[in-house]
Design a protein around this nucleic acid. Structure first.
Length: 118
DNA sequence: TATTTGACACACT
DNA sequence: CAGTGTGCCAAAT
């Protein structure tokens, strides 16, 4: 279980479950993987998700719904372009009606923070 | 083996 | 109510 990839795999598993037109915050994902507070590490995991596929990193934003990681995408506008294509309204690198598009994995997937094996 | 960085989050002023 | 500073976990060097 102490495999480094395990952590990434958990993050990918959650991000992969994000439905189209929805977005999740790093903190929520961090909690979903059992690493509450490791939001930064989640972003790091996303950095490794580039070479992989099926990892809609463009649906992952910070808590305020800002496209903080847009700079890490191939195109500076690729992130918002994809989000807009899914029905998400982006304004000035920020998601409009973030609460409306917010998708909490812990809540939607019914993940029990006590059942993460901690 | 220890230190610094990192696509954040929360608390305080 | 808004802005600034500090703290968190894990990975990489």
């Amino acid at each position: 279980m102490p495999l480094p990839e395990d952590f990434y795999d958990r993050v990918y598993a959650i991000v992969r479950q994000i439905p189209s037109g929805k977005v999740a915050s790093y903190g929520d994902i961090a909690r979903a993987v059992g690493a509450a507070g490791a939001a930064r590490t989640v972003g790091y995991a996303m950095n490794a998700s580039h070479g992989k596929d099926g990892i809609p990193a463009h649906r992952v934003v910070n808590r305020i719904g800002m496209l903080s990681g847009k700079a890490h995408f191939p195109g500076i506008n690729a992130m918002e372009q994809m989000l807009e294509a899914e029905g998400v309204v982006i304004k000035n690198d920020q998601i409009q009606d973030f609460d409306r598009h917010h998708w909490d994995p812990v809540k939607e997937l019914g993940i029990d923070l006590d059942d993460l094996g901690l």
